[in-house]
Amino acid sequence: MAHAISYTDTYPKAPLFTRIAHGLATWIDSYAENQPRMRGVRALQAMSDAQLAERGLKREDIVRHVFRGIY
């Protein structure tokens, strides 16, 4: 005797609203991360403390320095 099991959808999809919310959150995150100011923050964070000191910055002041024109 043979048994056959067919799965049409092994991993069921999330509800529509959940997929829309996840897609929107992913887009917002991607948009925010690719802004010039965020690239500036990442560039300064990649510097050593000595390099930041040459620029007159402390590590904890990077975000405040980069976003100073907004706040």
Rank of each mutant, 00 (worst) to 15 (best):
A4M: 12
V66I: 15
Q35W: 10
E54S: 08
M1D: 12
G56E: 03
L44H: 09
D29M: 03
P36F: 04
A43P: 08
A2Q: 13
T18R: 07
A46D: 14
G23K: 05
A21D: 05
S6G: 11
R39W: 03
V41N: 01
P15L: 01
A50Q: 11
M1N: 15
T18N: 07
G69V: 02
V41W: 01
R42P: 12
V41H: 00
A2F: 00
N34D: 13
Y7A: 15
Y71L: 12
A46K: 12
Y11F: 13
M1K: 15
E33S: 06
S30D: 14
F67N: 05
R42I: 05
E60I: 10
H22V: 11
A21S: 00
H22I: 05
D61Q: 15
M38K: 09
S6K: 02
G56H: 11
F17D: 12
V63L: 06
T26A: 12
Y71H: 04
R64Q: 11
I28H: 04
P12E: 04
P12L: 03
R19Q: 09
F17Q: 12
A25C: 01
L16C: 07
N34P: 06
R64H: 08
H3L: 12
Q45T: 02
L16N: 04
H22D: 07
S48G: 07
L44N: 09
N34I: 03
R59Q: 03
A21Y: 00
V41P: 05
G69D: 15
W27C: 14
M38E: 11
I20Y: 00
V66G: 10
R55H: 08
L57K: 02
I5Y: 13
R37A: 13
N34M: 02
I20P: 06
H3E: 15
D49V: 02
S30F: 03
G40F: 01
A46P: 02
A46T: 02
Y31F: 11
R42E: 07
I20W: 06
Q51C: 02
D61C: 02
R68Y: 00
G23F: 02
T8C: 06
A14F: 09
Q45H: 06
T10R: 12
H65W: 14
Y71I: 02
